[in-house]
Design a protein around this nucleic acid. Structure first.
Lengths: 202, 202, 202, 202
DNA sequence: GATGAATGAGGATTCATTCAT
DNA sequence: TATGAATGAATCCTCATTCAT
């Protein structure tokens, strides 16, 4: 009888289950994860799972959303409370943020979206609107702000904020697929930022 | 003219099945694809599948390898027959190659490796050694050649050939997950190449 | 009064299933018995079978063992509580025991071991050690006891306790294969015992 | 490409297949033997099998019958050409015959009949009439002849010729199930004959 | 609310049998 | 005849979901 990992109150249950599911999905992917396995990790009975999440699919969506919600706050929090120059912001908070993404739950969610996303367009919409679109808008915002301030020149980058995401995405995928092969993801991301700044600086 | 129930085509079967499987996996992913569905697409009975591939898993591996094999040839073919300058090669054949990857079967294989790779380390090894490592080595090779020729300066890029892959990878993922949202992947890749060349040119 | 769809009876399930399986195996043999058929006999769903027995093979082993276990007790029970003379014991309790074996579940298990035993050496070991070896040892024990007591003479029988089993085995096989042809198995066994006692009496 | 084991003429084919099947059935039993496996052993294609035997079941019956037929001749041949005394015949040719049965194809057929017999009553009939009944009748015949000649006394044995078979049957079963445990089947059979002769001698 | 025994649809795999060549 | 590629019914087993307790 392994002690249940969590022994908290009812109101925490959904989050506990959601966290257990995230872990399990991280290890095996969505399809290969048994509902019972999640229950075990959450220290909860199989039946109880269905009191909180009507189906496995719904649990999946809840997992994605829970991660999304936490990230959004972090992202937005950072953006709004800054008074750095555009370059300093990019080299500072933004870079830090980008560097920790590959090792964060976001990486797991990305994997899940790649595997299961095509069958859950609504979830992809949700993720896109709440994370990707916001993130891209924020980046575009910084760049445009820099242009306004005369720090940056006008360039195609404004329309391709994905260039900021590219090394992060590669790092995430690398971590999932080629985990054993070393890759200095921090340096990868830094160098990309360097190149981008060089490119857009007036 | 009823289709003949029997059609002996031993030679072509494996490839026919493999192609049908690629299609099916592309649409639904590995786990959600029924063996019978692949059989139907290949115009073949369920039982025959097992004559050529002992298990669904083996079919999966065959699919990955078949795509890999075709790409490798293409990749190597391009590299060895060139006498362009480093920059011209990168802006020419390499760029073309990179641009068409996101729309090619490689994109599907990437998705499969992200979903199922963690459970098939041998397959990941295979893919890494035959595609990724070779591709990265080739890129590193061009860059170093450019340095030797005095076209390029020494830079960190030599150790981060993944910077060339990053926009391609992002384009692939984008195509899988956010297909409906427009992204000019060609321009994305081009811009990255521009930035990289700016960065390494002497 | 519709039968309830659910009936929790964890305690009894294994035995219920095991008994249903014994019946089914008796009628059709192991290979020709469908798991679903056993489930139906046990009044249970197919899925539940797998909750108690991981595979059909494991169910098979459980059936053999369950029969074995019941017999062993009976066998040993008889042996240890006797104070009859050797001959009286053989003509009394032992003979009775032998007579009822051909009509008992043991006969079914024998059939199963003949059909499937060669593929389950561990099970054969188990059966041999727990039933055959013990039975033979017991018989040898009686005979030697009789020798010690002066009732019996020394003879080759001590090394061939299988002579006691032979008519029982023939009766079992006869019952399985030639059931419709009359054979007075009781008289067969009795006569063998007569001959054996004549042979070993001093 | 392993050389086919047999390379004879068409008229031998059925027997070749039948022999290959006997071997295969001996190793794995009927249910677990694949038709293809028999074909391979016979050095013949799967399709050809069906030219000679319409179904696997028919092949099975052919195997049983082929063994039966050969044994019957042997049995009858022995019986008719003798001019020994009853006891001498029993101790001589009959005993020899009995001793070699457990190691002969008959043992395999017995196993097959135990496993599959209940589903093939016609086959059991055939076997009973052609082998068992004849064998038992022959034994009864010897015994009665002995009585007529004054060698033997009247006894219950006349009605229980199965007492002659019992040790042979046990030896067969032992060989199938407990093959690794030593049992001197020759001595077992001899002792039984001794006992029987003691019992019936005037 | 909790539990976990029970259900059954669904899917991978096998193999006797067929048939184009 | 002879082959073995091709078929598909049959079967084991899994697992999301339900429900008696």
């Amino acid at each position: 009888m392994p002690k249940p990992r969590y022994q908290r109150r009812k109101e925490d249950r959904p989050q506990e289950i959601t966290e257990a599911a995230l872990e399990a999905f991280a290890e095996k992917g969505y399809a290969a994860t048994r509902v019972e396995e999640v229950a075990k990790r959450a220290g909860v009975s199989k039946g109880l799972m269905y009191l909180y999440f009507k189906t496995k699919e719904e649990l999946f969506k809840a997992v994605v959303k829970s991660v999304v919600i936490r990230r959004i706050d972090q992202l937005i929090g950072n953006i709004e409370t800054t008074d750095l120059s555009s370059e300093d912001f990019i080299r500072g908070p933004l870079l830090s943020f980008m560097k920790q993404v590959p090792g964060s739950p976001v990486a797991i969610v990305i994997r899940l979206l790649i595997s299961e996303g095509p069958r859950h367009p609504d979830l992809v919409d949700y993720y896109y609107e709440n994370v990707v679109a916001k993130g891209l808008a924020a980046i575009t915002g910084f760049v445009e702000q820099g242009v306004k301030r005369g720090e940056f020149r006008k360039s195609v980058i404004t329309e391709l904020p994905q260039l900021f995401l590219a090394p992060v995405m590669l790092s995430i995928i690398w971590g999932i697929v080629f985990k054993t092969r070393q890759l200095d993801t921090d340096k990868l991301i830094e160098t990309q930022i360097d190149m981008l700044l060089t490119h857009i600086k007036a």
